[in-house]
């Protein structure tokens, strides 16, 4: 009896797909834990460095670093953090949508845009809309190192020094919890003065070795690097959790489809049996 052969093969194939999505879900869950740990591990550095910058800005008011000065914005640079791999729900597309909204605003204000991209999803999207990509880094591991990013960041910082760009933004996903990731565009440079305000009583200054300017130069570029790195690590945690959720719902959907198909199959089988019986019965009655 060849009833519902197609349905049976369909069920098997969906079952196989479900096995894959379930495995991916479990892999993403364990990776998420690791990437989250990594994310937490990067926090002390950026906290410390911003403290020191606050002290410095307070202690040393006569030297104005270009990173701390607002200027008229004619061209902005955007560092975009995206994932290398897909199958992570709407993580990247939500981020790109937010970025495009900013792009539109800038375009209306006649501001030109340079982008530097981390992650191949971002590269393919922004090259398809003909954005001006000045730098890219792709195929990073789940545990990226700061050195992977220094080149890209230096490109943007140099552009800022040489007044190629007048402001620098970072676009990435913020990790809120496993279910929620919030895409956002954050201003990195110039560092706003209000952010640096802190009430320190009494006036004091550091002793500098070799001199204030050099120390401040390094400190501020490390600061930007630390924030971008943190953005990347956070985006990784977002990617894994988004993938986990997406794969979970894919597995659930596969289960639903299988249930439906099983029902269809059972019905078809029963109908075939009923038909056969009635054929036999009517055959017997005729005799």
């Amino acid at each position: 009896m060849a009833v519902g052969k197609e349905i049976r093969t369909q069920i098997t194939s969906i079952k196989n797909t479900q096995k894959i999505t379930r495995a991916m879900e479990m892999v993403a869950a364990s990776k998420m834990r690791k990437t989250k740990e990594k994310m937490d591990a990067t926090r002390p550095y950026s906290k410390k460095i911003s403290q020191i910058i606050k002290h410095l800005a307070h202690a040393n008011p006569e030297y104005k670093h270009p990173f701390l000065q607002e200027r008229e914005v004619k061209r902005v640079g955007v560092i975009i953090v995206s994932s290398d791999r897909g199958l992570c729900g709407g993580l990247n597309s939500n981020l790109f949508r937010v970025i495009l909204k900013h792009f539109q605003e800038w375009e209306q204000a006649n501001i030109e845009i340079d982008v530097a991209i981390i992650g191949s999803k971002g590269v393919s999207f922004f090259s398809s809309i003909n954005a001006n990509i000045v730098g890219q880094v792709t195929r990073l591991s789940d545990m990226p190192h700061l050195e992977d990013l220094t080149g890209l960041i230096k490109l943007m910082l140099d552009a800022f020094y040489q007044k190629g760009i007048d402001a620098l933004y970072l676009a990435s996903n913020e990790f809120i919890n496993t279910m929620t990731q919030k895409p956002g565009v954050e201003k990195l440079l110039p560092i706003s003065a209000t952010e640096l305000e802190e009430d320190l009583s009494g006036y004091w200054d550091y002793l500098y070795e070799p001199d204030a300017q050099e120390v401040l130069d390094i400190l501020l570029s490390r600061f930007v690097e630390a924030i971008v790195y943190q953005g990347l690590v956070e985006n990784n945690a977002c990617e894994q959790s988004a993938r986990m959720v997406a794969m979970k719902s894919a597995s659930d959907n596969a289960g639903n489809i299988m249930d439906e198909l099983q029902l269809v199959y059972n019905k078809a089988r029963q109908a075939a049996i009923t038909q056969e019986i009635s054929e036999i019965v009517s055959g017997a009655a005729a005799v």
């Binding site: 530097a116 991209i117 590269v123 990509i133 000045v134 730098g135 890219q136 880094v137 792709t138 190192h145 700061l146 050195e147 220094t150 080149g151 890209l152 230096k154 490109l155 140099d158 490390r222």
Partner: peptide, 21 residues
């Protein structure tokens, strides 16, 4: 720092990122 940082290494990395784009 997590790695040795020298001006020329950074420069090379920057050029690399640009070239890939």
């Amino acid at each position: 720092d997590t790695a040795i940082r020298a001006k020329d290494i950074d420069e090379a990395a920057a050029l690399d990122a640009k070239a890939r784009a």
